[in-house]
Nucleic acid binder design. Structure first.
Lengths: 229, 229
DNA sequence: GCATATTTGTCCGTATGTATA
DNA sequence: CTATACATACGGACAAATATG
């Protein structure tokens, strides 16, 4: 624990050099977001105002604004007079996240009878790079490409707000993936299903694609709930 | 404008007495949210840190935290080094909001083959109080009850995150309603449609309800876009 | 259960940078 | 171009709550 904290502080000190443009609070938030999603700050960790503020060389007030930003992205939770913590998802969180995914992703596919060329290209790219990463055994990258695929599915609905909703939702889910000890076992079985969904979309069989996606998400949810209590 | 600002400051001074519990920033945000949705701060208005801070008797740091909260609810927009403004919706915002509404609300109805008793009660309550408000010519209240009806539709999906998404979406739409000069003309024609949708849900005809809701939302969107450039 | 140390919540004053009249 | 007004960011202060021994 002490070792981890020391390395964390060291890494943050390097990040400090990158602080150059835009609003300080947002840049700080971007750095912390990166560190959280890559797993440097594990779920449940408390983020001290004092240590992180001095490590990044920003004042407490500025850091608190960054904390607010990330709290509203649900990556951090703020407990009054206790500080901020990296979010730890509960089982009901996972259930809810997949409920939203089923509803939104399936509806996005349903109403995409004639998907745009860019949307199709994004879907193909995501499937392709997921398969490439799998061949090279980069399982974290498989997970990332997988998320891009589902983000692209939502983009079929052509709604900026839905895109943002989906981004935030996937960022939350990533917190859960971080706590998985076997990324291969989780991501690999779903690879071929993405390919199948894409083919159904390309052939215009949106109903079939929706059915397949629905069962995909149901299975993934059970898989995740079971593996991670 | 000066008169309005003066009255606004006066009203905020009264609000100051209410500041007692929980987190100061959140209480300030709650007050401002109320004032915005009731129309005291019109869309486009700039909210000065100095004047509002002193009117409410809170420091600028605290006020800035409240501004962040409301910015992430999309009620305010933050422009770097220029301050925060009450959001003003563009036409493409309205189009996007209704796109999300169609997708989410219709999907929520679709998958609600057996709605819970509470959900049905919420739907009936909203329709009832909308009709009551209409009989008494309280058109703003009609609009509010209308929103409760559609919020209750989303609640059929039984997802906290979806509920929150819908709340934020409706709060945004309220900004648009505020700029309408004839609330009766906008809200009245949709009253009977809500009643019809409710009846179809009660009889288990989710497909019919979904179709009716879809056309409802499409019409409302055109109505709104046309009335408000 | 109590006393102490740590950390957060809130506010202030100020210096700097940015936009606008 | 200058002047003014304002936002940004910092550091310090004290109260209040929490954690620790």
């Amino acid at each position: 624990m002490i070792d981890g904290a020391a390395r964390a502080t060291e890494r943050l000190a390097e990040d400090r050099a990158l602080l150059g443009r835009t609003s300080t609070a947002e840049r700080v938030a971007a750095i912390l977001r990166e560190r959280i999603t890559e797993g440097m700050f594990a779920p449940g960790t408390r983020l001290s105002e004092e240590s992180i503020g001095s490590a990044l060389g920003v004042s407490r007030n500025t850091l608190r604004e960054a904390f607010r930003l990330l709290s509203h992205e649900r990556l951090l939770v703020h407990e009054l007079n206790r500080g901020v913590f990296v979010r730890r998802l509960t089982e009901s969180d996972v259930v809810d996240l997949y409920r939203v995914r089923r509803l939104v992703e399936c509806a996005a596919i349903r109403q995409a009878a004639k998907p745009s060329a860019e949307a199709l290209a994004a879907l193909r790219e995501a499937v392709g790079s997921a398969e490439l990463a799998a061949r090279e055994q980069r399982w974290e990258d498989v997970g990332t490409a997988n998320m891009r695929f589902h983000q692209a599915i939502v983009r079929l609905a052509a709604s900026p707000r839905l895109d943002e909703t989906m981004s935030r939702l996937l960022a939350e889910l990533r917190l859960c993936f971080l706590e998985m000890n076997n990324p291969r076992a989780f991501h690999e079985p779903y690879l071929w299903r993405n390919r199948d969904i894409l083919q159904l979309i390309e052939t215009g069989d949106t109903e079939g694609a929706e059915r397949l996606l629905d069962s995909y998400l149901t299975d993934a949810e059970h898989h995740l709930v079971q593996a991670h209590p």
